[in-house]
Computed example of a mutant assay.
Amino acid sequence: MAMGMASSGRRRGNRTRRAAMAEINVTPLVDVMLVLLIIFMVTVTLPAVGVPIELPESRANPVEELPDQVNISVDNAGRIYLENDPVAPGGFADALATIRRNDGEQPVIVLRGDTGLDYGRVMAVMGELNRAGFKSISLVTDGSDTAP
């Protein structure tokens, strides 16, 4: 044998027999699993707002999310949330005044209202939005297959 080269098997004539590898190389498996995890994390749609609300059903076409949209939620008790932060009772108009407008453009307001809400409460919130100068308001619903 040449110097520095070792053989792990026995020598039979001209053939060298090597012992079977007893360990499994898990590096490719881990690489594939990490890539799949990243793909899953990127493609899964996460809820944009963390306020738990039971949305009404509708067959409306979905609207794409915009990076500068403002989420306003009204829960079953009638409490208003700006993004994930609760708004103090009577402080909704002041909270709307804090919303920054980019280059004078009106941001898109996404209104999420609970199914059990009184229609008058939703209209009061929309009236305040209109009074504050917001003209582009989207109402969020859950998808449905059946017609009303």
Rank of each mutant, 00 (worst) to 15 (best):
Gln106Ile: 07
Thr98Asp: 12
Tyr119Gly: 13
Arg112Met: 13
Leu96Phe: 05
Arg112Tyr: 03
Asn102Cys: 02
Arg101Leu: 14
Ala93Trp: 09
Asn102Glu: 10
Arg112Asp: 02
Ile99Thr: 03
Leu96Pro: 12
Pro107Ile: 03
Arg112Ser: 14
Leu111Ser: 08
Asp114Arg: 05
Ala97Tyr: 02
Val108Ser: 05
Val122Gln: 11
Leu96Cys: 04
Leu111Glu: 00
Asn102Ile: 08
Val108Ile: 13
Ala97Cys: 06
Pro107Met: 03
Gly120Val: 09
Leu117Asn: 12
Tyr119His: 11
Ala95Lys: 07
Tyr119Trp: 15
Gly113His: 14
Thr115Lys: 14
Arg100Tyr: 05
Val108Met: 03
Thr98Trp: 01
Tyr119Ala: 15
Ala95Ile: 11
Arg101Phe: 06
Ala95Ser: 09
Arg121His: 14
Thr98Cys: 00
Asp114Ala: 12
Arg121Glu: 09
Ile99Asn: 04
Glu105His: 12
Asp114Asn: 03
Leu111Thr: 00
Leu96Glu: 01
Gly104Ser: 05
Asp114His: 01
Ala95Thr: 08
Val110Trp: 02
Thr98Met: 11
Ile109Glu: 00
Tyr119Leu: 15
Asp103Tyr: 04
Asp94Ile: 05
Phe92Ala: 02
Ile109His: 01
Asp103Trp: 05
Gly91Phe: 02
Gln106Pro: 12
Leu117Pro: 01
Pro107Asn: 07
Glu105Thr: 10
Leu117Arg: 09
Ala97Leu: 12
Tyr119Asp: 15
Val122Pro: 02
Asp118Ala: 13
Arg121Val: 11
Arg112Ile: 12
Val108Asp: 00
Tyr119Val: 14
Val110Cys: 05
Thr115Gly: 02
Arg100Lys: 15
Ala97Phe: 02
Arg101Asn: 12
Asp94Arg: 13
Pro107Trp: 04
Asp118His: 14
Leu111Gln: 01
Arg100Met: 10
Gln106Ser: 13
Asn102Gln: 06
Asp114Tyr: 08
Val122Asn: 05
Asp103Val: 07
Gly104Phe: 06
Gly91Arg: 09
Asp118Phe: 03
Gly104Gln: 08
Leu96Gly: 01
Ala93Arg: 15
Arg101Tyr: 12
Ile99Cys: 01
Thr115Gln: 12
Ala97Gly: 09
Thr115Leu: 05
Leu111Trp: 00
Gly91His: 02
Ile109Val: 01
Pro107Cys: 06
Pro107Val: 03
